[in-house]
Each structure stands twice: as C-alpha cells, then as structure tokens.
C-alpha cells in the first residue's frame, strides 16, 4: 500500500509537471497577449510593461521562471488586477468556490443516490418514473437557463431568496441548487441503472433466499456494488463543479475562482492562467487518487498495486 501510494504520488508530480508545461506552451501559442488592447500603447510603454512582467525574457527562461514560481508557490502579480498577486486572488476566490462546490456536491451525491436507489427499488413503479422525471429535467435544462429560471421564480417572483450576491447562507441556496442539478441527475440515473443490474445478480438472489431483510440487502450488497461507476465519476465531477461554476457565479454574482479562471484566459492574464490551472490540476489529481483508493473500499475485488495485471 505504501509503495503504491509513493508511486502514485510520483506519478502525480509528473502529471502536474506535464500539465504545467502543456498549459504554458498552449497559452503562449494562443494569439494575443495581456497587453493587446483596442488602444495600443506606444512600443516603449509596451516594452516597459513586458520588462516589468519578465515577458521580455526568452521563452525557455520564462518557462523556468514559471516553474520556479509554481514550486515555491509564489505565483507572481496579476496582469489585470494591478494591485493583487495571483496568490491573493486564489486565497480570496477559492474558499468561496469550495463552499459553493461542496454544498452542490453534497446535494448532488445524496440527492442523486437517493433518487437512484428509490427508482431502482421501485423499478417501473410511479416512484421510479417521478424520480427519473426529476433527473431528466435536471439534465435537459442547461445550467444557465436553470439558474436564470430559479432566480426568476424563487428570488424575483416569490422573494424567498436574495437575487444575487454572496453574503450569507440564504445567498448560497439558489446557486448550489443550480450547480447541483446536472450532476445530481447524472448520478441518479447512473445509480438507478447500476442498482437494477446489481439487483438482478445471483448474490442478491442468494441473499434474498437466505431471508435477509430488503434494507440489509440494499445497503450491504446492492448500493455498495452499484456505486462503483458513480465513484468513477466523482473526480471529474469535482473538477467540473469547481471550474464549471463560471456561469452560475456570474448570474448570481458569486465571487468565486471559476470566473477568475475563465476571465484570466480571455484577458490573457498569464500568471493567473498558470496559477489557477496549477491549483485546479492539483485538486484534480488528488481527487483522482482519492477516487482510485475509494475504489478498493467500495469494491473489494479491485486491488490496488499491480494486481490488475495478469
């Protein structure tokens, strides 16, 4: 196990290095720079700006500067926010994104699994249909429409929640719901189809024949086995929730990292692009590791290490 973990961590570092490298060169290959603007500045000012941000160095030196910055976690000044560093921006934005993301994730996982299990246990009954209608609706409506719709109904018409901003628990509800809708629906459907499949398997029949209680069967045998594909989905889901919150953050005026990330790309704010990318990739690779470890917990048939090879 320890050997396995060590190996995985080395892999993680290599992955991060490759991501940073690929991002750096793609970023440089995209036309336009941080100082491209409608009103071009005189070449001398541009040169001074480039010197200030070390963009005048040869490409490989810039690259090493970035690597150094990443390793020391000194991500440098932002190009657009003249009075902030990238570290400042991450420190401010991430807690908000993490809060929103965690709330949405919990909603999606618990809601999704509950709906899926209910639907599967009542296969082809009304509970099944209503759970799936909820799930399909969550998937059929794009998040930007759903978010605007929630805002329109629950905030503007009914006045139950604030329209926008991020100043307390009641402000977090609509954005979390909007963000959770699609992953929840996905998880619900995945859980349902797996559950139905698992419920048809011999070991469940055996358990039933042994006279085990339905609840016990469901919890001990069925759900556990049905969750594996759901777990597979969690890594990308978390990354998706964190970065994909852009539209929601914008509509509800949430000061998160998602919009920082997207805007940095359109602004060619190089340091912020690199900083947020590294940050997100770290979360992502760690999540993927956790997911792989979670596999073994959910499904004892899969062993970590090289056991998969025969």
């Amino acid at each position: 196990m320890i050997r396995y973990l060590g190996k995985r961590i080395i892999f993680m570092l290599i992955s991060l290095f490759l991501i940073v490298t690929a991002t750096f060169f793609i970023m440089k290959a995209v036309p336009g720079g941080p100082f491209t603007s409608e009103k071009q500045v005189p070449p001398e000012i541009k040169a001074a700006l480039e010197a200030k941000y070390k963009l005048n160095l040869p490409m490989h030196e810039q690259y090493f500067e970035y690597l150094k910055g990443v390793v020391t976690w000194e991500l440098g000044p932002s190009f657009t926010e003249k009075s902030s560093t990238v570290n400042d921006m991450i420190n401010r934005g991430f807690p908000v994104s993490a809060h929103l993301g965690a709330q949405a994730l919990l909603l999606a996982i618990f809601g999704g699994i509950t709906l899926g299990v209910i639907a599967a246990l009542n296969h082809n009954k009304w509970q099944d249909y209503s759970a799936m209608v909820i799930a399909v609706l969550g998937l059929s409506v794009p998040s930007f429409i759903l978010a605007s719709f929630y805002q329109y109904i629950f905030a503007i018409n009914l006045g139950w929640f604030p329209i926008a901003k991020w100043e307390g628990f009641e402000y977090t509800i609509l954005p979390s719901l909007a963000l959770a809708a699609s992953p929840m629906a996905f998880i619900a459907r995945l859980t349902r189809s797996n559950m139905i499949e698992v419920m048809g398997q011999d070991y469940i029949k055996t358990a039933k024949a042994k006279g085990l209680h339905t609840v016990a069967i469901t919890v001990k045998h069925a759900i556990r086995n049905a969750l594996l594909p759901v777990v597979t989905y969690l890594g990308p889901l978390i990354a998706g929730i964190l970065t994909g919150a852009f539209v929601i953050e914008r509509i509800f005026g949430v000061p998160g990292l998602g919009r920082e990330f997207v805007l940095s790309i359109t602004n060619r704010d190089y340091t912020v692009i690199m900083g947020t990318t590294v940050f997100y990739s770290m979360i992502l690779v760690v999540m993927i590791l956790i997911v792989d470890i979670a596999y073994t917990l959910v499904d004892p048939r899969i062993k970590l290490s090289d056991a998969g090879k025969e």
């Binding site: 490759l18 793609i26 990308p236």
Partner: peptide, 15 residues
C-alpha cells in the same frame, strides 16, 4: 487522460 483533462479546456479551444 487525466493530464489532458486538466489542461484548461478554454485555452485549447481558443487555440
């Protein structure tokens, strides 16, 4: 696949 997934999508798309 993980690495590909972690490269900022928007950047790739603009390129």
């Amino acid at each position: 696949a993980d690495i590909l997934f972690a490269i900022p999508y928007l950047l790739v798309v603009i390129l």
